[in-house]
Design a protein around this nucleic acid. Sequence first.
DNA 1: TAAGATTTGTTCGTATGTATA
DNA 2: ATATACATACGAACAAATCTT
Lengths: 84, 84
Amino acid sequence: MIEFDPDRTVWAQVYDLLRQRIESGVYKERLPLPSIVHLEQELGIARQTVRKVIAKLADQGYVNAIAGKGTFVRPREDWNASGE
Amino acid sequence: MIEFDPDRTVWAQVYDLLRQRIESGVYKERLPLPSIVHLEQELGIARQTVRKVIAKLADQGYVNAIAGKGTFVRPREDWNASGE
DNA sequence: TAAGATTTGTTCGTATGTATA
DNA sequence: ATATACATACGAACAAATCTT
């Protein structure tokens, strides 16, 4: 389980965590992230909060969610690291 | 169709219903339950809710789900009726 | 061998209600 | 009132195992 900073929102902290895992290669390009259910349990947070994070990661070009299949890490050139 | 008590969760009520059917012999030992799709339609509830109930029944030793075959009622001595 | 149907298993998507700050 | 967060529940698509034709 993870300890969250009570002074920041959970979703912002999870966003940073998952972005780091992508950028550092823990989650590899073109492969799926752990499922939403898995992340819920690993992080001890609600489904909607996980989805909020994934929506933002998708918006930033990090991942691509496909219904019924999974959420895949997009190739590095699609990432939009800075606020660009 | 079944009328659910709005003050209890659907899955808890369906769990009680199916457990009763098993314990009373409506669903017989070593034989398969109606399929998930059948239960969805009979009870008018979502697939995931049925699956949540079956997962709990399996956890309590009442049934054994086998992919591609069905969900079978386990012999009585395997049941874990009380909180034991 | 191949194709199709049935069944359980897994996944993302959406909506509602509740509680809290 | 708004944003955050959790729990429940429904919807839809995809996949794999099993069985039959």
